[in-house]
Write a protein that binds this DNA or RNA. Structure first.
Length: 462
RNA sequence: GUAGGUAUAGCUCAGUUGGUUAGAGCACCAGAUUGUGGUUCUGGGGGUCGCCGGUUCGAACCCGGUUACUUACCCCA
């Protein structure tokens, strides 16, 4: 049988894992630096927890898990199962008789579920980070996987926009350390709601935002066409034009919005929130990323109600979204806990990896397959056991060390092993060295070697 | 779901208008070198040309189907 793995999933070898862990470590360190505490949730959730939170399109992308042992059902139940199965064949339909669990689609909804279930034990505002894989039943493409990691940081139980500011500061610091040039776009769903209200099309808000969101991709004409197809009236589209044409500085954009939204309460609230962030950006003094108000930014997820974020690499040709996030005023409400507002962001590690690979941003220290400092090579059984003793002394001294575990005819084999793993030093122990209580230490890069005692060996490797 | 592209050695790929025994580079194994890798030289192993069928004296090559992978659209980290 020819081995394979499901489409859109990947194996990660030691070389890739070095680089992935480098990213994870930077993010994790910063999460902790900003006061977030780690949690984990199960890979699978009850499917009812997930459905209806991600929009119509999102629901289709949820990975469903078939109930186990359905063949053991009683006969009358089987009739019902067949009916449910047939219905599933006809239309998009969820039957709990067939499927009661699903793989998590993101980390935010499971987090909201967690908060509601653990409300009694949490101190608010509750700040958590979570680094786990999520799954989407999508068709894989470049930069799009069916299993990928998200690194989320969320604050729940605080309405303050200071949380947004701090998130921006954390985004800045993280991308600075990863050395990725980044453009962080933000917007506010209240602006979008205000626009829909002014146009008398509040029920079409999703259609409008999705269409406007595509501006940089399909251009103004494309947006106008799509709006028409979605049933937006011509006069409304005409009204929208100044917004579609919106450009210039952040302040210029706000000025246009002020006029456009002057009669919408929710719109004005959105402008107020945007202004707060713009006015205080200097307080957190972002050093690295570029922050830009983009009123065409919509984001697909249904649960956002306030600020929304999206970041892309600001260099290279491959620039997928590598971070997303936003504020959700009542995500816990669906699970029975009202009045908790939260805001959070999600780093997409797999795409960050792809971008860093394209821009060649990994430092040389992580661009290798092994962290071993020295390999001890042996000439036979007695020497091997001598090495086993030596290597444990090296480890006690804090040096990453390994011993070649087999006795082989050719010592070259052991050097080859060290070379392939890019181990910088090889210690050779033969009869002479054993008698002298020394090690022949070879520097693999320069090719030079020197007979040293243990003290000198540790010094050379420190 | 819609539309393209690709499928030949472990990997990346050549393969002429259809012609006899299907190649290269890398990787692998052995030797040159019995206490030394990476460089060099020599030799070697490795193929159901994705699968099924058709056309033909003859198919890796042409035709039909099928599967897998891949890119774009929709949507998204």
């Amino acid at each position: 049988m020819k081995p394979s793995i499901p489409r859109g999933t990947r194996d990660f070898g030691p070389a890739e894992m070095q680089k992935r862990q480098y990213i994870f470590n930077i993010l994790k360190t910063n999460f902790q630096l900003f006061g977030y505490a780690p949690i984990e949730t199960p890979s699978m959730e009850n499917i009812t927890t997930l459905t209806g939170k991600y929009g119509e399109e999102g629901d289709q992308l949820i990975f469903k898990i078939l109930n186990s042992r359905i063949h053991e059902s009683k006969d009358d139940k089987k009739e019902e199962l067949k009916k449910e199965f047939n219905t599933s064949l006809e239309k998009s339909y969820n039957s709990e008789l067939l499927t009661e669990k699903a793989l998590r689609y993101d980390l935010t909804v499971p987090f909201a579920r967690y908060v509601v279930m653990n409300n009694h034990a949490l101190t608010y505002p509750f700040k958590r980070y979570q680094i786990q894989p999520v799954w989407r039943a999508d068709k894989p493409q470049k930069g799009r996987y069916r299993e990928f990691y998200q690194c989320d940081a969320d604050v729940i139980g605080s309405n303050s926009l200071v949380n947004e500011l701090e998130l921006i500061a954390m985004i800045d610091k993280s991308f600075a350390e990863l050395n990725i040039p980044v453009l962080l776009k933000f917007n506010n769903r209240k602006i979008l709601s205000g626009i829909a209200e002014i146009l008398n099309a509040s029920d079409k808000i999703i259609d409008i935002t999705v269409a406007i969101d595509k501006l940089d991709k399909i251009g103004k004409e494309g947006v106008v066409k799509e709006l028409g197809e979605k049933g937006i009236s011509e006069s409304a589209i005409k009204q929208l034009e100044p917004l579609i044409d919106l450009s210039g500085s952040n302040a210029d954009k706000v000025a246009v919005l002020n006029t456009f939204l002057s009669t919408s309460d929710i719109g004005k609230k959105g402008i107020e929130e945007i202004n707060f962030l713009l006015n205080h950006l200097k307080t957190i003094s972002t050093q690295h990323i570029k922050v830009e108000l983009d009123i065409t930014l919509a984001r697909g997820l249904n649960y956002y109600t306030g600020t929304i974020f999206e970041a892309k690499a600001n260099a290279g040709t491959f620039t997928p979204s590598i971070l997303g996030g936003g504020r959700y005023d009542d995500l816990t409400g669906i699970f029975g806990l009202k009045g908790l507002s939260g805001v959070g962001i999600s780093f997409g590690v797999d795409r960050i990896y792809d971008v860093m690979e394209e821009l060649d941003l990994f430092p040389p220290s992580v661009n290798k397959v092994s962290t071993t400092k020295i390999l001890l090579a042996n000439f036979g059984e007695a020497e091997l056991m001598h090495c086993v003793g030596l290597v444990s002394k090296l480890r006690a001294a804090g040096i990453n060390a390994e011993v070649y575990p087999d006795v082989v005819k050719k010592i070259a084999k052991q050097f080859e092993y060290a070379d392939k793993k890019q181990i910088p030093f090889v210690g050779v122990v033969g009869g002479n060295e054993m008698a002298n209580n020394t090690i022949m230490l070879k520097n693999m890069a320069s090719g030079t070697q020197e007979e040293v005692d243990f003290t000198k060996l540790v010094e050379a490797l420190k």
